[in-house]
């Protein structure tokens, strides 16, 4: 564990807490893409299948439970909670996210480190996480407003994988044989997808006004 990895995990945790805070306190999920949340639930479900078979540390298991619990409860809130699901703009959240799942599964079957059930699903979760934000970014362009908790959520979510990239660079130089091209490329693609959002997000800080 290094400072970049810890900062990345804390940023990721903060992103989830910001979203839960928004949905739970103001009982609204306006501007939040249910499709992105469903993709993240699948990402965690397929990445943490080994949660009961391989113990790494209390921290690791705890964080996996937090990410699993929060992503599924956010999906539950947005689908079934009486007040929240009314605020979900279904007409705008139309990105065909199932078109992302299949190519990621095929790619995981073709490119992986080991051809085992757990490894292929784990690799699938990496590819899927890289593109999971797309429905949310498309929805953001339609709702045209980043000046709210959803904007903070996306900012933190994009930042966490960027910090993980620093962690991978650090580990590459400090740990012999630490090479994971699949993870690195998927993480890089994921972070690059946020470049456009980061640009407008920082403009908003500099301009000090809501950016369209």
């Amino acid at each position: 564990m290094n400072i970049f990895r810890l900062a990345g995990d804390m940023t990721h945790l903060a992103s989830v807490l910001v979203l839960l805070l928004k949905i739970h306190t103001i009982k609204s999920c306006a501007g939040v893409s249910l499709r992105t949340q469903e993709l993240y639930a699948i990402v965690f479900a397929t990445r943490y299948l080994d949660i009961f078979t391989s113990f790494v540390s209390v921290y690791n298991t705890f964080m996996k439970l937090v990410f699993l619990g929060s992503s599924f409860s956010i999906v539950w809130y947005m689908r079934y909670h009486k007040a929240v699901h009314r605020t979900y703009d279904r007409e705008q959240d139309t990105f065909r996210h199932w078109f992302l799942v299949l190519p990621c599964l095929v790619l995981a079957l073709l490119i992986h480190e080991k051809f085992t059930f757990l490894e292929v699903l784990w690799t699938f979760s990496l590819y899927l996480e890289a593109v999971a934000i797309l429905p949310q970014l498309v929805l953001l362009q339609r709702t045209r407003n980043i000046d709210n908790l959803t904007g903070q959520y996306i900012f933190l979510l994009g930042g966490y994988r960027g910090l993980y990239i620093l962690n991978w660079i650090y580990r590459y130089f400090t740990e012999p044989h630490f090479v994971h091209w699949i993870t690195w490329i998927a993480g890089l693609v994921q972070t690059l997808l946020y470049a456009d959002f980061f640009y407008y997000y920082f403009l908003r800080f500099i301009g000090g006004r809501g950016v369209e």
Binding site: R5, D9, H12, D50, S54, V56, S57, N60, M63, K64, F67, E113, W122, Y164, N167, E175, H177, F178, V179, H180, T183
Partner: peptide
């Protein structure tokens, strides 16, 4: 690389 080191991350 050993199995664990690539799976010790979230």
């Amino acid at each position: 690389s050993t199995e664990s080191d690539s799976k010790d991350e979230l």
